[in-house]
Amino acid sequence: MSGPLLSARGVTKRFGGRVACRDVSFDLWPGEVLGVVGESGSGKTTLLNCLAGRMTPDAGSVAYDTAAGPVDVHGLSEARRRLLTRTEWGFVSQDAREGLRMGASAGANIGERLMAIGERHYGEIRRTAADWLGRVEIDLDRLDDRPTAFSGGMRQRLQIARNLVSRPRLVFMDEPTGGLDVSVQARILDLLRGLVENLQLSVVLVTHDLGVARLLTHRLMVMQGGQVVEDGLTDQVLDDPQHAYTQMLVASILPA
């Protein structure tokens, strides 16, 4: 078996005197879904941005095993890193407006990655876009509508399609279901679970919702004050929390 897909070693990021994330190390294996949970302000999103090359950590390194061989994410040239992020990686933001091109139609949004890597056949791009729209359960007659005309849940699904069209191996997700109502959340989670399984995706998922973590992730890291206080298999962490903070977190879920 090959090595880990993504491995972080001692990732630290400071904003002035404030430490947003301190000495985080882990390995992500191919096909694995890793959850990062913690309360707001615990450094989850900063960690995700450092992993995805959107921020440069002050210390530590992130290594990624590309199809062609392992690379140091932050040692890459900007050109190669950007190429990586639009081919082998995906990034699903909490706010769909950040991840989508709001002025372009749904079809163009899905097709953008294809065009960026050189696809120049309009009919072909459109067919692929329609196919992906179907996979994320959006009606085909919305293909030429702009995301501004979409509901929050549809935008989020469109964003997922836009990222997955290039068949990435690793997807970063920042609260993909945050701010959506419960029934829409459930549908998206269902969809994500299916896609992750079918496409053999590896995922780093940031969420504050332990229910989402339980449903989607294989392994869990619990963060508090920028540090990982506990990690392990999801069921193990949630059923038998060891750290006081995790215990508090688990105990604070409202009974359904």
Binding site: E78, R86, A104, A108, R113, A116, R126, D144
Partner: peptide, 18 residues
Amino acid sequence: ALREYGVMQVSLYESIAR
């Protein structure tokens, strides 16, 4: 600088779609 011209193609795509 990085020759990332996908977005230009997106605008042509939009034109055909519309």
